[in-house]
């Protein structure tokens, strides 16, 4: 077993763009579910429209990257309005089904050959973020080492900006949730009718929440798209939504830092597990008859499923959560 490699990849994973992707997705879900109680099971869809809005604008329409980012955010707002219009008037579990279906529609349309000329089909869209890396204060191609961390100049730049976005969203969440606006949201989570009876337009607040959290998800998609210089439809499978939920629950919902902490731990564990299993398989600790190299790639998803269930059952309040104040009653 190459322990050095294992540790390096685990430590490095703390800051990589994939972690940022899931953290932002989870921050959005924190607004949706953590504070407002909206069961959005289609966060992957919001992340997808962010990423594709950017990529399609640049690649297909030839607009600048910065316009593309605005387009990605705009699409997320549009998607929230489109879904919220029917679904926010309905019972909570209907929203869950509508959002999960919408996210799948987006993925299927993006990967369909009928939209290939726009969305690139199965292989997605690549190399559209040059403008971003032109601004890089580090040297794009150089490798930088800091103790156990090792990143390329490109990685450093997207990580710096990506974590900047995460901090900004955390600040936004903090400011909003200490305000009377946040109080209305938390009250809606507890009991919609009570809030209605006090003269608040619950529907409008839910819509604002859906838009805000959706935009956060879209920013996650945008960061990953720029970081990878690529978008692929299957990045945005339903599984992605649930990795975000796993992160949110682990960190603690309705807490400003819950999704950030949870996102880091959840994704690092998810990725670290994969590295460890592959190392074990390479070192023949697990015999080939029990686990082939194809199978070893599957194991982490088995753990992902198990971890989601166990978390929900045994520690629904997560690390930072207070069961008295907010329990998911898992």
């Amino acid at each position: 077993m190459n322990w050095n490699l294992i540790f390096t990849s685990i430590f490095s994973a703390i800051f990589i763009k994939e972690t940022i992707f899931y953290v932002l997705g989870a921050q959005g879900l924190n607004i949706h579910y953590g504070y407002t109680g909206l069961m959005n099971f289609g966060q992957a869809g919001f992340m997808a429209v962010g990423a594709y809005g950017l990529a399609v604008s640049v690649e297909t329409f030839g607009w600048s990257l910065w316009v593309g980012i605005l387009v990605g955010i705009g699409w997320a707002i549009l998607l929230a309005l489109l879904l919220g219009l029917p679904a926010l008037r309905l019972r909570g579990d209907y929203l869950a089904i509508v959002t999960i279906a919408a996210a799948e529609i987006i993925r299927l349309v993006a990967r369909s050959e009928s939209t290939e000329s726009v969305a690139g089909g199965n292989s997605g869209i690549n190399n559209f973020a040059g403008a971003f890396y032109d601004l890089n204060p580090w040297v794009n191609t150089r490798r930088y080492d800091f103790g156990p961390f090792s990143y390329s100049g490109q990685d450093l730049w997207i990580q710096a900006v990506g974590w900047g976005v995460v901090l900004l969203m955390a600040l936004l969440t903090f400011l909003l949730m200490r305000s009377p606006w946040g109080r209305v949201l938390r009250s809606i989570r507890e009991n919609e009718d009570a809030v209605r009876s006090l003269g608040k337009n619950v529907y409008a607040y839910k819509m604002q929440s859906l838009v805000l959290g959706g935009v956060m998800g879209a920013l996650g998609g945008i960061v990953l798209a720029i970081g990878n210089q690529s978008v692929q439809p299957d990045t945005f499978a339903t599984r992605t939504t649930f990795i975000c939920y796993g992160a949110l629950i682990l960190g603690g919902a309705a807490r400003v830092w819950g999704p950030v902490l949870g996102g880091i731990i959840f994704y690092v564990a998810f990725r670290g597990l994969d590295v460890i299993i592959r190392q074990m398989e390479k070192a023949d600790i697990v015999p080939e008859s029990i686990m082939t190299s194809t199978q070893s790639g599957v194991v982490r998803f088995v753990f992902l499923g198990g971890a989601l269930m166990l978390l929900m059952v045994f520690r629904p309040q997560g690390i930072l959560g207070d069961r008295k104040e907010l329990a998911f009653d898992g």
Binding site: L172, L175, L176, R178, S179, P180, W181, G182, R183, V184, S187, V195, L198, G199, K200, Q208
Partner: peptide, 19 residues
């Protein structure tokens, strides 16, 4: 109790950001 007060400025999105 505070929630019961109608027409609060801080209950609007943008003003909410500035205490």
């Amino acid at each position: 109790m505070r929630l019961g007060a109608p027409d609060q400025r801080g209950e609007r999105f943008f003003p909410a950001l500035v205490k």
